[in-house]
Every structure is written in C-alpha cells, then in structure tokens.
Simulated assay, not measured.
Amino acid sequence: MTPFEELFNRHVATAFARQLALADHIGERDWQLDLTEGTATFGNDLRYQVQLLGTESELDRTWLWAWANEGSGIPPALLGLAGWLREYGVANGVPELTEASFPLDRAQGARLALIASALSGRAYYRGPYDGGAVFFHLEGLPAEIIAPARPERVFTVVGQILQGFPVDHRLMVTSFLSQQGWQVTDTPTEVTGRHPGGTDMRVTFDDLGRITNLAGSIQPG
C-alpha cells in the first residue's frame, strides 16, 4: 500500500461523511465561484470563502494542482490550503500531493479532495464546467457539517464507501469509527464499535479482510 493509498483508506470515510452533510446543507442550489472575492455562492442565501484545490480536465484526463496553475492568475490568498498539502506531501512522502499534474487514472480529483478534507477538517465542492471541473474547499461552514456523523449515518457511510471505492475494509472501518469517537475493539475476525450514545456496530471479515457481515443496533437520540 502506497502512502497515498494508506491516507485514503484511513480518512475516506470521515471525509465522505462530511460531504453527505454538505450535500444536505446545499441541496439543489446552483453554484458560482468568484476568484476576485474568493467566495462561492450557492443559490441566493449561502456564501462561503474558499480555498482552491485544483482542476480536472476531461480533455486530456489529467489533474492540475491549483498552485501549479500559473496561467490562471489565481490570487495567492486562495492557494494556502493547496500549498499546505504540498508541504505535507513532501514531509510524508506522498508524491500525489507534490507533483503538479498527473493522469486521473492515478488519482482522481474526488480522491484527492477527500484526503485534503480529512487532513484539513474541511468539506469540498466539485464545480463542473465545460471541459472539466474545479475543486475547492469551503471555509466557515456550519459546525454540524464538520462534527462527527450521527450514528445512523455512520452505517450509511460504511456501505457507500464499500460500494464506491476500492478500500482496505478493516482499515477503513477501524479508522472511521475511531475518528468518529466510537470505542473500537479489533479482533482477528471481527471489529466492534460502540457510540457514546449506545449505538453499536459489529463487522465480521473473511480471511482476506473483506467484510462478510455488518450489523448493529441504533439507539434513538
């Protein structure tokens, strides 16, 4: 497992839970990005400061980090997070965070943005445009978006991660539950988690570490 893959496996679920909470908050609103003001507007009532992450090109199927997009005249104030991630990549040997551009079959924008969200405690937005998409992180979101997920959503997130991403099942589950404040017990065949509110999760694995059963009881409140 490469350093990038380990980062993704450890943090994808917590970051994905924030994305679900952000989707609840934004709903079906349209989006606009103003680089001069450094803001993103959703509909007529939501407006947040942003940090640019990078862009995906559908034309040549590549990712380009915002700090390397010298031709777009991006204000330096919007590159703080991308620059911090680059420094993190240098310090921790993660080339996907330090190389200016690379093919999307190596790492798509969503995977990069999820890692960035997890490491920074933010949530991101993917803004599609003709020929690609821009990824940016939102500043000053309501606290409930960044807060630990509700117990019932934890079950939903685990299921959606398993369907949507190739991950190490055990590493994903144990990391997610620990990050969400659950008490975790890890045995060779089973991982159990208990939320402070009483909800519990029981996950069993086969010899290859794949989930064979996920069960539990959700306590109200």
Rank of each mutant, 00 (worst) to 15 (best):
M1D: 11
F4I: 00
R10H: 04
V12D: 06
A13V: 12
L20K: 13
A21D: 03
A23R: 12
G27F: 06
R29N: 13
W31P: 00
L33N: 07
D34Y: 02
T36V: 11
T39W: 00
G43E: 07
L46W: 03
L46K: 15
R47N: 13
L52Q: 03
L53W: 10
G54S: 05
S57D: 07
D60W: 09
D60Y: 12
T62H: 13
A68S: 15
A68M: 03
N69Y: 11
G71Y: 06
G71T: 09
L81H: 05
L81M: 07
W84L: 04
W84D: 07
L85W: 01
A91P: 05
P103N: 12
P103D: 08
L104P: 01
L104M: 11
R106A: 12
A107C: 14
G109P: 09
G109F: 07
I115W: 02
L119I: 10
G121I: 05
A123D: 07
Y124S: 08
Y129D: 05
E139G: 04
G140I: 12
E144S: 14
A149R: 02
R153G: 06
V154E: 06
V157T: 08
Q163G: 07
G164W: 02
F165E: 13
P166V: 03
R170V: 09
V173G: 03
Q183W: 00
Q183K: 14
H195M: 03
P196A: 11
G197E: 14
G198I: 03
M201P: 00
V203E: 00
V203P: 09
F205P: 10
P220D: 15
